[in-house]
Amino acid sequence: MTRETAIKAENLSLTFQTNDGPVHALKDVSLDIKKGDFVSFIGPSGCGKTTFLRCMADLETPTAGDITVNGVSPHEARRSRAYGYVFQHAGLYPWRTIGRNVRLPLEIMGYPKAEQDERIKRVLELVDLAGFEKKFPWQLSGGMQQRASIARALAFDADILLMDEPFGALDEIVRDHLNEQLLKLWAKTQKTICFVTHSIPEAVYLSTKIVVMSPRPGRISDVIECPLPAERPLDIRDTQEFLDVAHRVREGLRAGHSYD
């Protein structure tokens, strides 16, 4: 089965000029992401995983190489609102209720009022936040805030979801729960998801493809296809198959990183 390419990077490099000389955030990164993939990017701090995601989102401009999103440049993709971006901190606007936070992209993109209402209702149900529309962000727990920010990214019809360590600041129990929900959501919406994480179990549990990255310069050291079935209950993490994949990811991380 050949699926269409969603994101394609070829020899992508990004060098930041700093006072201490150039920093190679990304060096010769090539990757092919198919439509409907769930791709995790894992690696230690400074390996360029977030920078790579930001290049896809046109929030950073690569200094060399090519990258296309849905077959066009990231800039055009951003212009045509091809992706939703979930930031590390929920980043909800504190002066807006949850409902109005989800409404923000819809207002900006000029959806008619009735459709805005309908979409807000639908995505809040999708992330299990029905009934919280009129609450302000500070009245919600960290996990609920992050779910609201996912709803905000889902509210408009982008078929790519870019997530930058969205559950990094949450405790493990909440994180497990959100991982489970995210998988269901992915199955329901058929979106292409790029997911940056620090956690090996999280990456293995969620992904169809795990991209292991290593720092100085930021590059891809291994790409692992995850053979786990599409249907993944939480206790799949205790199976031998899961542990094998996790082991391979750990090996990849170790190989790309000298612990001196």
Binding site: A57, D58, L59, R78, R79, R81, Y83, G84, Y85, F87, Q88, H89, G91, Y93, L104, P105, I108, M109
Partner: peptide, 15 residues
């Protein structure tokens, strides 16, 4: 982050 969010929506300067 708040500014980047609006950029991902390709919001105008006025927005």
């Amino acid at each position: 982050e708040q500014l980047d969010l609006l950029k991902t929506y390709s919001a105008s300067g006025q927005q």
